[in-house]
């Protein structure tokens, strides 16, 4: 039994980008019944116009297969820190990786029941990075930091593939100094362990610390309960 997380009506505004009218309508009604505001777009062009108008949104549910392009084509136009959940009937590994690289917080399977989809979207909203931020800083800064964590993970993985320990150390150094202040104490601790391992030139420790740090960076970008392929 999965309960839909309670939401405060009016606090969430979801941009739902989906071209199949009936599916979009059903999903919108179900979301509205659970207290969400929903803005609809049936293609990339409509979604772009809403985003360029500065429409305030708290998350995006984004179909990948749209008539005027791939859903992820619009990712860069979505304000930093606004979580994006991909919506797809395609469960392939390629799609998963592509969404992951684009920093989608989840992939929502169209094969699921409507009720379960709404529950998963509620989780995306409830666990949106901005809500993890406990300090008194402005939400925009917190959102930018979440985007930075995603970039840091990609850079870290690239540096690891190149055995570029100087870059790895530099990334860990920056994470070590900031993560705890943005509510990610686990990332800060892992970055500290990685820095120590590099200082000691202990390859086994470095690899282990890298594994942990990358995993925690992934956790920071992906809603824990939903992960990929909900």
């Amino acid at each position: 039994m999965h309960n839909i997380p309670a939401m405060k009506a009016g606090t969430s505004r979801i941009l739902l980008v989906e071209d199949v009218d009936a599916f979009r309508l059903y999903l919108r009604l179900a979301l509205e019944q659970n207290g969400f505001q929903v803005l609809e777009a049936s293609n990339l062009d409509q979604a772009r116009r809403l985003l360029r108008a500065g429409t305030q949104i708290t998350s995006v549910v984004l179909d990948l297969d749209l008539p005027d392009g791939h859903g992820l084509d619009i990712i860069s136009e979505i304000p930093p820190g606004v979580p994006v959940a991909a919506l797809s009937a395609d469960d392939s590994r390629e799609t998963e990786l592509r969404c992951h690289e684009a920093c989608c917080v989840a992939i929502l399977s169209k094969k699921k029941r409507l009720r379960d989809l709404v529950r998963d979207i509620a989780m995306v909203e409830q666990n949106a990075p901005k809500t993890r931020y406990q300090a008194t800083l402005n939400p925009q800064l917190a959102s930018q930091y979440v985007s930075y964590l995603c970039e840091a993970r990609i850079e870290l993985q690239h540096a690891r593939s190149q055995h570029d320990y100087s870059s790895i150390r530099s990334i860990a150094h920056k994470l070590r100094g900031t993560a705890v202040h943005f509510g990610y104490s686990g990332i800060g601790a892992s970055a500290r362990a990685l820095g120590s391992a590099i200082k000691n030139s202990n390859i086994a420790q470095i690899e282990s610390a890298l594994d942990t740090l990358v995993e925690r960076l992934m956790d920071a970008a992906i809603v824990p309960q939903s992960r990929l392929h909900l």
């Binding site: 800083l137 930091y145 920056k174 900031t178 943005f182």
Partner: peptide, 16 residues
């Protein structure tokens, strides 16, 4: 040189 350190610290000091 870390913009997040500067932004975080600026806001914290200004608010406190």
């Amino acid at each position: 040189d870390d913009p997040f350190v500067v932004a975080h610290l600026s806001e914290t000091l200004t608010s406190r």
